[in-house]
């Protein structure tokens, strides 16, 4: 009977090892998840910054474009005039 008990106790070492190993793995996974979530927070900040920079650039573009409107028109006029003249060139 003693031998059986000893064998059974030894057999208990197998699930105990699994528990040890799994516990170690879950700890590592928890750390990995924490890292990933920290990175997510940083990325969200970067995303907000990028969005803010985009919005700023968009409004700056609208302002710059409005200010450039007469020159855009002027530029097109001179281009068209030059193209028209080129038709007379040999």
């Amino acid at each position: 009977m003693k031998k059986i008990i000893i064998i059974l106790v030894l057999l208990l070492c197998i699930p105990a090892y699994f528990v040890y190993s799994l516990n170690k793995e879950t700890k590592a996974l928890e750390a990995k998840l924490a890292d990933s979530e920290t990175k997510q927070t940083e990325l969200n900040i970067q995303l907000n910054d990028a969005n803010a920079a985009y919005q700023e650039a968009e409004s700056e573009l609208a302002e710059t474009k409005e200010a450039a409107e007469p020159f855009i028109e002027e530029n097109e006029k001179w281009k068209t005039r030059a193209e028209e003249l080129q038709t007379y060139l040999p």
Binding site: A57, L61, A68
Partner: peptide
């Protein structure tokens, strides 16, 4: 957008060059 801003900001110069 920033490239477009640069183009539009230089439009006065571009028109003069044209």
């Amino acid at each position: 957008l920033q490239e477009d801003i640069r183009i539009y900001a230089d439009m006065e110069k571009t028109a003069a060059e044209t």
